[in-house]
C-alpha cells in the first residue's frame, strides 16, 4: 500500500517535469524551426534590402527602420505617461472612489486584447484625429497598449522603497515631489527599467493592432530622415509617413505561399524572437541583480 502511494508520487513528479519539459521543449522547437528555416536567409543582403516579388532578393530594411521609429514614438509617449501614472497612484492618490476607478481601468486595460487597441486607434487616431496610417498612429497605439505594464511595474518598484526612507526625507523638510524625485525614483529605477524593457519587448512584437491601423505590407521606401542637412536640421515628417514594422513584414511573408517566402518569414521571425528574448533576458538579469543589491 505504502509502496503504491510512493509509486504514485514518483509518477506525478515525472508527469510534472514532463509538463514543464513540454513547455520548455516547445520554446526550443520553435526556436529550432526558425533557425533551420531562416538562418540561411539571415544575411547582410536581407537586412539591407527592400521587399521584393522575388523572395531571394527581398529584405527587411524598411521594417527594421519602421519598427525602430515606431518604438521611438512608443517609448517617448508610453514611458513618461506610464511612470507618471504609477507615481501618482502610489505616492499621491488618496484612497477614494476616484482612485479605485483609475486602478480598475488599469487592470482592465491590461486584459484588453491587443486587436481592440487597434480598433480604438483606427477610430480615434486614424480617422477622428486624422493622423492616418502613420508611424505616429502606430507609436501612440502601442504606447496605450504598454501603459498598464509600465504602470504596474512602476508601482511595484516604487512600493519596494521602504516607508522609513520617505519619512527621513519628509522630516528634513522635503516636499512630496522632492522626496519622489530625489529618493523614491532613484532607488526604484532598476525595477522601473525592468518594466520598461518588458513593455517595449512586448510592443515590438505586436502585430494585430498595427495591422488594424493600416500598416502597409509592401513598403519599398524609407520614411523621411529625422535629420536633415538644412536648418533646423531636425525633421518630424517621418512621424506622418506610411510604414511597416517587422512583425507585419513577417506576417506578409507567412501569408504568401511558397517555401521561399516561408524562409523569409522564418528569418524575420528569428530576428524578432532574438530581439524580444534579448530584451526579456536583459530584464530578467536586471531584476536578478537588483534582488542581490538591496540597500535597506
Amino acid at each position: 500500500m505504502i509502496k503504491r502511494r510512493k509509486y504514485a508520487e514518483a509518477l506525478f513528479k515525472v508527469l510534472g517535469l514532463s509538463s514543464l519539459a513540454l513547455a520548455v521543449g516547445t520554446l526550443a522547437l520553435l526556436f529550432g524551426a526558425l533557425v533551420v528555416h531562416g538562418i540561411g536567409r539571415l544575411d547582410w543582403q536581407f537586412l539591407t534590402s527592400f521587399p521584393s516579388r522575388h523572395a531571394s532578393q527581398a529584405g527587411i530594411l524598411p521594417a527594421v527602420v519602421g519598427s525602430t521609429l515606431v518604438m521611438l514614438v512608443t517609448a517617448c509617449a508610453g514611458i513618461p505617461v506610464g511612470v507618471a501614472a504609477g507615481i501618482y497612484l502610489e505616492e499621491y492618490a488618496k484612497r477614494t472612489w476616484f482612485t479605485e476607478l483609475i486602478e480598475v481601468t488599469v487592470t482592465n486595460l491590461a486584459g484588453v486584447p491587443s486587436i481592440i487597441f487597434g480598433l480604438l486607434a483606427l477610430g480615434l487616431f486614424v480617422y477622428m484625429l486624422g493622423l492616418g496610417a502613420s508611424i505616429l498612429t502606430a507609436g501612440l497605439t502601442l504606447a496605450l497598449l504598454i501603459l498598464p505594464v509600465v504602470i504596474v511595474t512602476t508601482r511595484e518598484a516604487i512600493r519596494a522603497v521602504p516607508v522609513h526612507i520617505r519619512e527621513a526625507a519628509f522630516a528634513l523638510g522635503a516636499t512630496r515631489w522632492q522626496t519622489v524625485a530625489d529618493h523614491v525614483l532613484p532607488y526604484s529605477a532598476a525595477g522601473i527599467l525592468t518594466g520598461i524593457i518588458l513593455a517595449l519587448s512586448r510592443a515590438i512584437g505586436e502585430t494585430a493592432p498595427i495591422v488594424t491601423v493600416g500598416a502597409l505590407t509592401f513598403v519599398a521606401f524609407l520614411p523621411p530622415a529625422p535629420i536633415t542637412s538644412q536648418p533646423p536640421y531636425l525633421s518630424f515628417e517621418w512621424l506622418m509617413s506610411p510604414f511597416t514594422v517587422m512583425p507585419i513584414q513577417m506576417f506578409a511573408w507567412v501569408s504568401r505561399p511558397g517555401e521561399d517566402f516561408a524562409a523569409n518569414a522564418a528569418a524575420a521571425g528569428l530576428l524578432l524572437v532574438g530581439m524580444t528574448l534579448t530584451m526579456n533576458g536583459l530584464a530578467i538579469y536586471v531584476r536578478y541583480r537588483m534582488r542581490k543589491r538591496v540597500f535597506w
Partner: peptide, 27 residues
C-alpha cells in the same frame, strides 16, 4: 514643510539614504 524645516527628527531604526555619506548630510 515649514515646521519640518525648523525641527529635525531621528528615527528609531537608522534610516540613512542609500546615497553617499556626504549627500546624506547635505540633503
Amino acid at each position: 514643510i515649514e515646521v519640518r524645516m525648523r525641527l529635525a527628527m531621528v528615527f528609531q531604526k537608522p534610516n540613512p539614504f542609500p546615497k553617499s555619506v556626504y549627500e546624506n548630510v547635505a540633503y
